[in-house]
Design a protein around this nucleic acid. Structure first.
Lengths: 178, 178
DNA sequence: ATGATCATGTAATAAGTTACATGATTGT
DNA sequence: ACAATCATGTAACTTATTACATGATCAT
């Protein structure tokens, strides 16, 4: 059982989903392609951590809707208590910045500006999610309790938003220096 | 040529280093073990991007000090101009938080507090680097120019520091909610 | 004595990406 | 026409981790 497998169980604890949907929704926390997810789901099913129902569709291709079993839920609880792996970040930009003196001001500026565009798109996406969360939630977000199904989504969005804003501020700060 | 290979060249552009040192110094930007780095250095040497001198040592094991060739420096310049890959972050904690409602308050608190310890250690390490940078740099850090060899180090430390501080603030904020 | 740091390397495995494969619907 | 989205899966390949291997100093 690797981390991604537990990640899939973690998402399924909230909603029953297809492999395709899992692939889309796990992206902010863990980048993975469908080719990695489908085999893992088959493994999890064999272990009895998840089960699926085959749902035929006429307009779109048929799908398999996976759901978490009680065994899977217990595995999740055990996993949470185990020591958490250190976060891994691999950012090509940081490696480029380390030798940015090799190119001239304009070229250096462009490297940063391209990343800024990427961060701004992310910010928009996260802000959209934030609005959606507020809409389908009658309570005030900051009053949500631990047991509330929306709670952790809110907590994660808060982190993601703070981080992108920080990253954008850095882009701005460093551009002024170039 | 993968990103890590360019990363090694990027470090070597600043200082000539051994594989062991490269392994240590690339960690903040790109997590890689020595078993990945040594074979890549051999490849880079065959391509003529780096060269090395064998340095015998009496107390410690002998070492190979690698340095960047002009061919390697030119490869770096080309790489900087190519589109930059999106950053990849894989954080088990985020996946755990997504299903944190499965455990009780105290257990949830501990998950966050463990990560807080990790972030605080990082903060200390970065702050130490910051002091070191200030010591062997007669100019004021914020007046450093693009060509200054210390410039990008300062720019990267600034980002790393801001990020850890943000992450710690999030831990604090979320703990108050649990 | 036991583990940590320095220093290099290879072998085996696991994890992740890209490419191949199919096929309908919807929008430009 | 052409690309995008939905939906699943496998095969080939690259990348990254863990384990194996050696061996000297230094601190606890």
């Amino acid at each position: 059982m690797n981390t991604l497998s537990y990640g899939l169980l973690s998402l399924l604890n909230r909603n029953s989903r297809t492999g395709y949907e899992l692939m889309q929704h796990i992206q902010p926390f863990w980048q993975a392609k469908h080719s990695q997810i489908y085999p893992l789901l088959a493994q999890l099913e064999q272990k009895g951590h998840v089960q699926f129902v085959h749902v035929p569709q006429s307009d779109k291709p048929d799908k398999k809707v996976y759901s978490l079993t009680e065994l899977g839920r217990e595995a999740l609880r055990q996993w949470i208590l185990k020591p958490t792996d250190e976060p891994v970040t691999r950012d090509e930009l940081m490696l480029k910045v380390y030798c940015i003196g090799l190119v001239d001001r304009d070229q250096a500026r462009k490297v940063i500006e391209d990343r800024e565009v990427f961060y701004r798109q992310r910010l928009l996406k996260f802000e959209k999610s934030y609005e959606q969360l507020q809409q389908n939630c009658e309570k005030r977000l900051d009053e949500l309790g631990l047991q509330d199904p929306q709670f952790s989504h809110y907590v994660l969005l808060h982190k993601a938003l703070a981080r992108v804003k920080g990253d954008l501020a850095w882009c701005d700060w460093v551009k002024a220096k170039l």
